[in-house]
């Protein structure tokens, strides 16, 4: 469970929020001039970042306001919460993380070291069925 700091309401449980996908996807200036591929890319193609990712969230059971968040998709560390319409703040400042607390920092380091283990065990599990089929 993430503890998300809503700019209006303060720290609340993740269950009070809804995810809004990637932030900073600008609407095309002239949608009529796009071909089908460009339009499809605008509609459906999103980054699948491993690491710091800018995304939109809405505090749906609270103040019902949207905001942007910089979140690490590996460690779940929330690095910044900033209003809609403002540019993405400079990333990769882990020591001076805006909303980072001691507890989340500890979590991020533990999950960060656990991530490669999970990846290696994942490869091990994918090789195991191959051996089984042989």
């Amino acid at each position: 469970m993430l503890l998300i700091t809503c700019p209006n309401c303060g720290s609340r449980d993740e269950t009070e929020f809804h995810y809004g996908g990637q932030a900073h996807v600008a609407y095309p200036e002239n949608p009529n001039e796009l071909n089908d591929r460009e339009w499809a890319e605008f509609l459906f193609y999103r980054e699948n970042t491993k690491g710091t990712f800018a995304e939109r969230w809405v505090h749906s059971t609270g103040c019902r306001q949207w905001f942007n968040m910089l979140r690490d998709t590996v460690t779940y560390d929330i690095q910044a919460v900033y209003p809609m319409g403002t540019p993405r703040p400079a990333a990769a400042v882990p020591p001076a993380a805006e909303s980072g607390t001691a507890s989340t920092a500890a979590d991020s380091t533990t999950t960060g070291t656990a991530a490669p283990d999970a990846a290696s065990s994942g490869t091990a599990s994918t090789t195991a069925p191959e051996g089984a089929t042989k």
């Binding site: 309401c9 609340r12 449980d13 269950t15 009070e16 059971t61 609270g62 103040c63």
Partner: peptide
């Protein structure tokens, strides 16, 4: 007064 969840409902 706050807007929140009690028993998983808003």
């Amino acid at each position: 007064a706050v807007n929140t969840e009690v028993g998983n409902i808003p």
